[in-house]
Design a protein around this nucleic acid. Structure first.
Lengths: 233, 233
DNA sequence: TTGTTTGGTTGATCTGAATCAAGGAATGTT
DNA sequence: AACATTCCTTGATTCAGATCAACCAAACAA
């Protein structure tokens, strides 16, 4: 990798806060890699050989049962971190939902660099704590929410996360956006089938809460109502 | 607190690995506190004022929806860490399932101590990564597993975690143990109702996979079969 | 243009778990 | 011992979401 100082996720990824000389060293350890939509970069159960920063694109983190049932346990965006540091095996797979660009490190190399740079470990800790919070939210959704509530929650979450740019000012929650997920994947995040997802979306559209100009785009028409539905109010 | 070096979770809690002088300082910052079964030590949505190590006992970590639906998102045992460091608010409640003893720190005090002790943050990071792995496992369970599979998974998990003592040698998965949860709480962990939990337990008993000598105790009769059920094999 | 494929919708039916409803068995109280 | 109370089990019924089954529409290929 040439120059981390020019990286577009420089201020949002875990590398933020490193001193120029440290960044220089880290830059030498990583390499940029493009991955095509659909490509899997980490396999569940395999040795955890790489970790990475997401520079561009959206990826899914998923786990599955032997008979093929799959649960998406996370969706990762630009500037997020992927992979399982400090662990022998990766408990999940990571697959690109869109074409993506990553900044990849060998896991063991990254581990030892991190151990020598407390600031980096601190960033990673905060990030992991946030992810854990999100996982807990999702457990509440999967354990207790109805299909409508789940769909509403997902749409609001996607709207918020696709709107995050890191530039504090315009962390505008988007009212119209492209879903990086197809219906099957939405089902796999929400613990629902493709048909239920489709029906619930149609219902929200019929009720005037959202609009669906085409397969992949969602336009939120009545955010307050969507929020009420998501919160079961 | 008098003397951390005598603490029974000394070698398993995040304080493990601190130098004697650091441990001395940390000891001054914390205080021991007993909590009775049923008592809540952290409230969802409140300012995150305390964090703690669990010295003795079992606690639940839970989140809820305004209408009262509750999901248990974690169960915490002796030597585990509770609370949300580096965060303004606690996203969950923590409630004692048995009488318990904690080693409590003010959150802000703990945060700054941690920032000055990379070794501690590293321990906390590893612990948080493990918890995240467990949360992901549970998302798979909540999103995709059947009632029987969920019960089987819970019993195996409780057997394993109650068996962990930190002494590497006897991390024996227990074949008989006392559940720290009642039926309602089992339902709240598994995303099931009390009736379904009861029926599935009765079924496993009828099939000779487990025995239920009394309300709270479980004896695993056929661990292989239980594992097959949990893994959907 | 006409197939073909892929992804999405909608309808009909089924089913696993929820809900509703009684009891029963421990545990605690007077 | 008699009575609550709490917790659990079991049965009957219902229902939200799964499954099964067509069909539709956009994207692509020939």
């Amino acid at each position: 990798m040439k120059d981390c100082t020019q990286c577009i996720v420089r201020n949002r990824a875990i590398c933020a806060g490193l001193e120029p000389d440290e960044l220089e060293v880290l830059g030498q350890l990583g390499r940029r890699q493009r991955v095509a939509k659909g490509q899997t970069v980490v396999w569940e159960g395999d040795d955890s050989v790489v970790v990475a920063n997401v520079i561009e694109g959206v990826l899914k983190v998923s786990m599955s049962i032997s008979d093929g049932r799959e649960q998406i346990v996370g969706i990762v965006f630009s500037s997020d971190f992927i992979g399982r540091p400090f662990g022998q095996q990766s408990p999940y797979s990571v697959t690109a939902l869109t074409d993506a660009e990553l900044c990849i490190f060998s896991r063991s190399t990254f581990d030892s660099f991190a151990r020598q740079h407390p600031e980096l470990e601190h960033k990673l800790l905060r990030r992991t704590l946030n992810e854990l919070d999100r996982a807990h939210e999702w457990m509440l959704l999967l354990g207790k929410k109805t299909a409508t509530e789940r769909i509403a929650t997902l749409l609001l979450e996607m709207s918020a996360r696709l709107g995050e740019t890191g530039c504090s000012a315009d962390d505008s929650t988007l009212d119209a956006f492209q879903l990086p997920l197809d219906r099957q994947q939405m089902g796999d995040v929400l613990g629902l089938t493709i048909e239920t997802v489709s029906r619930q979306l149609s219902k929200l559209k019929a009720d005037g809460v959202i609009n669906l100009p085409d397969r992949r785009t969602v336009a939120i028409q009545d955010r307050d109502r969507l929020q009420d539905i998501a919160a079961a109010a």
